[in-house]
C-alpha cells in the first residue's frame, strides 16, 4: 500500500496517531507523526507514491511536525520539527510546513546516514548509468535535475548522491524537488507535465515550490545505478553551453569537497571517491539554456561507451 492509496481523511487519522505512519523513502524508513495538519493536502500529493512500510521494519528516523506551543496555534503560528523527540532547529512560520518537513528530513539524512558517502548532488540515470550533478547552491542543480527527470532520465535524487561503499553504486532517494524563485516558472514553461505543488513565499530561500517525484522514479527506488558521469553544472545568465573535461585529480578534490561526510568516512571516504572518479568521465558544464544543456548531457549518454 502507498501513501496515496489512503484517502486524505484516513491519512489524517493515521498520521495523528501516537504511532504515526511508517513511510519508505529510498533506503530510509521514516516514521511520521503530525500534530499540524495543514500540510496534509500537499503531503498526500507529494508523497503519494511512497510505499507504507510493513510492520516490524527498523525505523531510521522518527519525525514529527507540530505547532510550536499552545499560543502559537493562533498568534503568528509556528511549526516545530522534531526528530526522535529533539528539535534540531528553530521553529518556522507554520505556513512553511512542507518545506520545513523536507528540510528536516534532509537534516536527518545528512546527520545520520554515515554508512553511505553523501554527496551534495542530484543524480539521474539512463540506460543503467548514473549521471552525478554535484552543485553548490545557485549552480542550477535542481532546475537541471527537474528538466532531466522530465526528459527521459530517471530521478534518483535531487539533493543527496548516496554512494554505497560496498559496491560503489548510487542509491535512489527520490524526493520532492524544491524549486526556488525564478526556477519555478522556468520549469512550468519547460515541462508543463511536471506536477508542481503550492508556492511557499517568504521562506529563508525565497519562494519555494516542490515538484512531485515522477511515479516511475519512486516505483524503482530500490534499483541502484552505476556511476558513469560526474558533471559539475554552473548556470550563468547568457553563458554559452560548454562541456569541458575535468582531469581526475581535480574531479576527486571537487567531489570530496562537495560531500557532506567525506572526512567523517575517513579512509573509506577516500576509497569511495577514488572509485567513483575512476569509473566516471568528469566534466564541468556551463550553461544558460536548458534545452542546450539537456542536449549535451543526452549526447553523453548516447555516444559514450
Amino acid at each position: 500500500m502507498r501513501v496515496g492509496d489512503l484517502d486524505i481523511d484516513e491519512l489524517a487519522r493515521q498520521v495523528q496517531r501516537p504511532c504515526g505512519i511508517d513511510v519508505c523513502i529510498g533506503p530510509f524508513l521514516v516514521n511520521l507523526q503530525l500534530g499540524l495538519t495543514a500540510l496534509l493536502p500537499v503531503l498526500w500529493r507529494m508523497w503519494g507514491d511512497y510505499p507504507l512500510a510493513v510492520p516490524g521494519q527498523v525505523r531510521d528516523f522518527h519525525v514529527r511536525l507540530d505547532h510550536h506551543g499552545w499560543l502559537r496555534r493562533w498568534w503568528r503560528p509556528q511549526a516545530r520539527f522534531t526528530v526522535d523527540g529533539r528539535s534540531p532547529f528553530q521553529p518556522l512560520a507554520a505556513a512553511h510546513h512542507f518545506p520545513m518537513l523536507e528540510w528536516g528530513l534532509n537534516w536527518c539524512v545528512a546527520r545520520r546516514a554515515h554508512h553511505l558517502l553523501m554527496l551534495h548532488a542530484a543524480v539521474l540515470e539512463r540506460g543503467g548509468r548514473a549521471l552525478v550533478l554535484p552543485g553548490a547552491p545557485g549552480a542550477g542543480k535542481s532546475t537541471l535535475c527537474t528538466a532531466l527527470a522530465h526528459r527521459g532520465w530517471r530521478l534518483l535524487s535531487d539533493e543527496f548522491g548516496l554512494v554505497a561503499p560496498q559496491h560503489g553504486r548510487l542509491l535512489p532517494l527520490p524526493r520532492p524537488i524544491p524549486l526556488k524563485n525564478d526556477s519555478i516558472e522556468v520549469i512550468r514553461a519547460f515541462a508543463p507535465e511536471a506536477e508542481i505543488g503550492p508556492a511557499f513565499t517568504g521562506t529563508r530561500k525565497g519562494t519555494v515550490a516542490h515538484v512531485r517525484p515522477p511515479r516511475a522514479a519512486v516505483m524503482r527506488m530500490d534499483e541502484p545505478a552505476t556511476p558513469a558521469w560526474v558533471v559539475f553544472p554552473r548556470w550563468q545568465a547568457e553563458a554559452p553551453t560548454r562541456l569541458e573535461p575535468l582531469n581526475r585529480s581535480d574531479a576527486f578534490l571537487m567531489v570530496a569537497g562537495n560531500a557532506f561526510n567525506y572526512e567523517l568516512c575517513g579512509e573509506g571516504g577516500f576509497i569511495t571517491v577514488a572509485r567513483l572518479v575512476e569509473r566516471c568521465r568528469c566534466y564541468r558544464l556551463g550553461y544558460s539554456d536548458l534545452d542546450a544543456a539537456l542536449g549535451v548531457l543526452g549526447a553523453l549518454a548516447e555516444t559514450e561507451p
Binding site: N247, R248, S249, F252, F270, A274, E278
Partner: peptide, 12 residues
C-alpha cells in the same frame, strides 16, 4: 592510501 592519475597523486 594513494591514487595516481595522469602523473598527479592524491594521498590519504
Amino acid at each position: 592510501l594513494e591514487v595516481v592519475w595522469d602523473g598527479e597523486r592524491l594521498l590519504y
